[in-house]
Write a protein that binds this DNA or RNA. Structure first.
Lengths: 343, 343
DNA sequence: ACAACAAATGACAACGTTGTCATTCAGAGT
DNA sequence: ACTCTGAATGACAACGTTGTCATTTGTTGT
């Protein structure tokens, strides 16, 4: 039989309401009683019934909404969120979806209701769709967004990732190796990260007084196939680049694939840099130079902010302050980039 | 304001109990009233409150317990389970853990209580630890296991995967290509899949009248690093194999890595086969011959069986029948295996 | 037409918790 | 000693649902 708050109360010799007070850290309980209650809680291994609490209005699950085919990234996020969740006694409900779906807001709202989550962690590209955020907030959903930006915006609490700077670093790394014709293979254009990374790339070129060459800049998707296709276009050109900055590791993988197919040696004939520090980047030959995302820490921070905000809101309905926290992915030098060789 | 069962009742002009009956498909409600109720439900967009139901004893979440570093595999499982869950109005709670942890059973039990799941999906290696299963069942936890076996066992409902046969097929494929010295790189020995695959490999050799060579059979772990280390041992030997069957794609990745480092061409100098059909196997150069796991379908089936069983149990406490369902991974021929070349 | 019975419906308790309010108690100020 | 205050504690309702049981309605057989 499951132990309830009343069992604890009986053992501790107090009313069950007092037990409720103690376990919720409410004020005005005599220290002596607190001790008794905690002892009883421990002895009976009491765990409050989630549903009863929830029924009374205190939700304690987070929802993770994502539209992303990248398993590794998602798992990292999940693990980060789970870590924070368990610290605070929350559970995690995951909800994959299609960002392009027409009634995405309804879908999310319905999911929020069904699973009765206290708040949502939104990931790109959903987190970067103002109208979605707006509608959700209008409906009273507490949320935190993980976004690609150099600083927090004022739409909601968010964890922002400085893709711009990270891309700048990668490009600078390639430039430092002597490369001048550096190509850029972009990801989905509706992901802000792709634009940010492109900007970082362009700025690095500019700061180093290098001309950006439109023929070396291709938009695409964050996928292996896109990487294969675009790198094929790129490397079949008359004057091909000596280095390629791929917007994520999958694109880099596709580029590597094409290079091998064309008989190009990496990095001696062609340097390739990715972005994400995925398992692939460590398992390919050569191992990929990339940028480390720290998805787990990012997600954990996001969950922390979210839980914080949920508790804030519970206390007072009026006025809430938005929080922001920034991460910058770090360059990881491996073997797919090398000095420019003079032909 | 959230709509409750009473709102629906008022609109439909019946008692709220009748609404309860209708939405739970209980018998003995006049067809006409059923229509009215469903109309009201639709108009108000009513969704039953999960917590209230749960409080009353009807859980509707599944738990996924796993101890596995393989993101792709986990995500596949999750997606499969989620698909089935949503079909039946269930939610999914995920719970990573350490199978080797001393008090793993307590951890799982505590998780089961905390999150109040109706049942668990267990994955290897946890699903293959009899004492864990036993303790959980003793505690009344409903569970379904995904296991590596040729047929269902009688411990609990399970989805079984015929790794033996799949491994046989892969080995046969290598033999058909003319290879005689075929090495085997195993995964974690506490995963039954590794043993099953080894047996399949050995049987294929035997059926083809080939001698198994102990020097060509190495146990290890299901990791890239293990693949690198073991393939290194293997390929530095005087008489090295012309083909390697790696127990999963990560090990195959490590093997590919070593081959490249040693300057061996794949598949002309060395054929490599993996197992799993991971993204890596499609993104590497050359692409890996492997075996397709269908993790999503497997997991969906498992979830289906679990939900089924949960509902069975609810109806009658006494006697429950165990279900089993089998899958066999299929050979996927790609470019990392080729005919044996005579030196 | 009436009893007997089954089907249809509803009233109400219960699940385990938290919020509201009332009550008790201890100590301070007169 | 006697009120007054605020802290400490408890009694009880409420959350939205399902299970139990009672009641009403309808149908069948005589």
């Amino acid at each position: 039989m499951k132990t309830t708050i009343k069992d604890v109360a009986k053992l501790a010799g107090v009313s069950f309401k007092t037990v409720s007070r103690v376990i919720n850290h409410e004020p005005n309980v005599a220290p002596k009683l607190q001790e008794q209650v905690w002892a009883a809680v421990k002895e009976l291994n009491y765990q409050p019934n989630r549903s009863a609490r929830l029924l009374r209005g205190t939700a304690s699950s987070l929802g993770l909404i994502y539209d992303n085919p990248n398993s590794h990234y998602i798992i990292e996020l999940q693990n980060g969120i789970l870590k924070e969740c368990h610290k605070h006694g929350f559970e995690l409900i995951i909800h994959p979806c299609e960002a392009t779906s027409k009634n995405i807001v309804d879908e999310i709202l319905s999911m929020t209701q069904r699973s009765q989550v206290a708040g949502l962690v939104l990931t790109p590209p959903l987190s970067e769709m103002p109208e979605v955020i707006d509608e959700l907030q209008q409906a009273g959903v507490v949320l935190v967004r993980i976004i690609s930006a150099q600083q927090a915006d004022t739409i909601s609490s968010c964890v922002f990732i400085d893709d711009h700077r990270a891309a700048y670093q990668i490009t600078q790394h390639l430039i430092d190796l002597g490369h001048k014709d550096i190509a850029f293979l972009g990801g989905d254009i509706d992901h802000r990260s792709s634009l940010e990374r492109k900007d970082g790339y362009l700025n690095a070129l500019k700061d180093n007084k290098l001309e950006a060459n439109a023929e070396l800049i291709l938009d695409g998707r964050y996928s292996f196939e896109s990487g294969v296709a675009n790198s094929d276009i790129l490397l079949q050109q008359d004057k091909r680049p000596s280095a390629i900055f791929a917007c994520n590791d999958e694109i880099a993988a596709g580029t590597l694939f094409t290079a091998r197919r064309l008989g190009l040696e990496v990095p001696s004939d062609l340097s390739i840099a990715g972005f994400e520090d995925s398992p692939f980047s460590r398992q390919s030959w050569p191992q990929l130079t990339t940028s480390q995302q720290a998805g787990r820490e990012i997600a954990q921070k996001a969950a922390g902010i979210l839980i914080d905000e949920i508790r804030q809101r519970k206390k007072s309905t009026q006025g809430y302050a938005w929080q922001g926290y920034g991460f910058c992915p770090q360059l990881v030098e491996r073997d797919s980039t090398g000095p420019k060789t003079t032909e």
